[in-house]
Design a protein around this nucleic acid. Structure first.
Lengths: 367, 367
DNA sequence: TTGAAAGCGCTAACAC
DNA sequence: GTGTTAGCGCTTTCAA
């Protein structure tokens, strides 16, 4: 009973409203005194470590119910000064620059919790190689960290490695790609269907006439589900509007015939006035549009890659939707850190805002 | 030398890159041993509390230079278990619903740091009364908190009260409204000029023809500077485009002749195809437009008030710019808390993203 | 000027 | 079963 927690709200300007919570903060010693037992016994009850008589158990629990005991986390983690270790696994940013901002997000998390005993190790795998994914995962398992935060790009392989982590009692959380599994304790990412709807609304607001193309750029198979969900949300938006005035075409492109196929598609569909690109490669479409077309086609794409921003500044890309990888990685990391240090619950699913970006607000999302 | 901080980056998928920092974490005891003095002496050096011989000072400093000592904040705050108290002062949400989300932001901050010894008290003042502002501030000063976070709506009065806080050694930080004063240790808010530019870019993207009106709704004088800065950024954007095709009119409205004046203005300017409203009262313009006009006028306004969202869903307001009061209040609060608990620096100026909101992504910013 | 020691709240090993 | 105790790292008081 030696410290207090107070919470008050004041309100004044003719009348004065005064609301005040005074909450006493109890320590284990207080509880021991109140229950007439020793600190050790209280601790055994709190941690369900057994070896407590029925009588003592009831006395302590009675007090605990009455007082809303909040353990002092500072003291707890001072005592248990174990080094928690977290391994983070994501696709190699050298293979796809989309992942680059994640590094910064992880570093920010690390910097923020620098004074605490946290060991963070970051690993990259080749996004085009399930083998590299499996290899790195077995390296991580050998290090037996307390938790792993990973991007589950490959469905089957992920379920496979998760079982191994589970067997080793290693906590698994994910970001960017959502995979259903009760063994995954947390997912941080975006609602892709909803992000398709955001893109649809943008084009619906801008376009006065013409038709729309959904462009999928087929890089590696990892994105297949992503692209499908975005298309689903996009079409869904227009289906809900009775009597939508646009025809919507889907256009699947892949290298190396990308450029030729896109040009052919546009020539065959001269009514196209808006394009929605479902990957972060909008700049590749913009390059082509810039060369062939003077008439204005509105383009909505994803992600603040340098090349995308360049074409947005040129006026060829109109909007970019920010998938916020950096913040995904940051929140995934601090979620684990705060769980270990402060005993916080890990939120099962955290859906980040779907940011609409134009030339004028871009700097706030890239910084 | 009894615990470690490690930081590693792995990279593998044909070659293995392995980068590993192993940083030993030192305690005061370690330093004392290394320097051949006692813990007490090390502490005196660390805190510059004097009473240390030249010889001892040099020995300790030499070690400190070599090892990059990071004090254990858990232990420190366990020892100094003082209750830090923070008072928060903002305009009454009953007078202007704009401020309502701030309450939630403050409560989130409170919930997040519940286990620590922080006392938070929230006060409201009448945004139309400098007197109430001064009265509440003198109540707060009497409570002598460790810090105050306030919305400095009134320039002169704010400078006045800040001096008093300074004299009482109470830390002052601000949010939402920026006032230049070296006595203000932190500001959390948005760049209003840039937010005007964001609005301009939106209208520039959407409008195909016609002219633009900037509408100021004159509620109370508090907003005068806000509105001016937004207009400045807005016009600035179009001035930078050589040969902008729009004429831009400024329209100042105030109640009770608001509706009539707006209708008159639109009748006198039939070319208007886009409206930028510089306050959170876009819904008032939308109400009028809905009644008088079938032709499409594009509207960009501010803030996710229920009424604004309602008109956005009706298709009358096209975009809302989110000033993110909730996050401003949240970040302002946790900035202070982390300063007190973890000794973190308070960032002098924190500019939040200027979020572009349409019907499809609104829920992420209001939740 | 310096070192020794107590104690913040919690945990866990160790006697009884 | 239960209470006592040492100790996590830091601060601060008190003797020396």
């Amino acid at each position: 009973m030696n410290c207090m927690f107070s919470s008050t709200t004041f309100y004044l300007y003719s009348i004065i409203h005064y609301i005040c919570h005074m909450k006493t903060k109890y320590t284990i010693k207080d509880i021991a005194n109140l229950a007439g037992v020793s600190k050790g016994t209280v601790d055994r009850v709190l941690h369900k470590r057994g070896k407590v008589s029925q009588d003592a158990l009831e006395k302590v629990n009675k007090i605990l119910e009455e007082i809303d005991y909040q353990p002092n986390l500072m003291a707890r983690s001072l005592k248990n000064n174990k080094i928690f270790s977290i391994c983070i696994l994501l696709p190699d940013p050298n293979s796809d620059p989309y992942w680059l901002p994640c590094i910064e997000g992880i570093q920010n998390a690390k910097a923020e919790f620098m004074p605490f005993n946290i060991s963070l190790e970051t690993f990259f795998f080749n996004p085009e190689s399930t083998k590299s994914f499996l290899e790195i995962n077995s390296i991580i398992i050998k290090k037996s960290p307390d938790a792993v935060l990973l991007v589950p790009l490959f469905f089957k392989e992920t379920l496979n490695v998760i079982e191994k982590y589970n067997a080793s009692k290693i906590l698994v959380t994910t970001f960017n790609n959502q995979i259903q599994s009760k063994s995954i304790k947390s997912f941080v990412g975006q609602d892709l269907i909803q992000s398709g709807r955001v893109a649809a609304k943008l084009l619906d607001t801008i376009l006065k006439k013409g038709d729309i193309a959904i462009v999928h750029i087929n890089e590696v198979f990892k994105n297949a589900i992503h692209m499908q969900e975005k298309e689903k949300g996009f079409r869904n938006y227009f289906e809900e509007i009775n009597g939508s005035k646009y025809k919507i075409f889907t256009c699947k492109l892949k290298h190396p015939s990308f450029k030729k196929d896109l040009i052919d598609f546009l020539e065959n569909h001269p009514s196209i006035s808006g394009i929605f690109i479902t990957t972060s490669k909008a700049y590749q479409v913009a390059e082509v549009i810039e060369q062939i077309d003077n008439s204005k086609i509105t383009i909505v794409g994803y992600d603040l890659l340098d090349k995308n921003i360049k074409y947005m500044k040129k006026g060829i890309i109109d909007f970019l939707i920010n998938q916020n990888q950096k913040r995904q990685a940051y929140l995934g990391t601090i979620g684990l850190i705060e769980h270990f240090i402060f005993n916080k619950d890990i939120s099962n699913k955290l859906l980040l805002p779907i940011d609409i970006v134009n030339t004028e607000n871009a700097k706030y999302y890239t910084a």
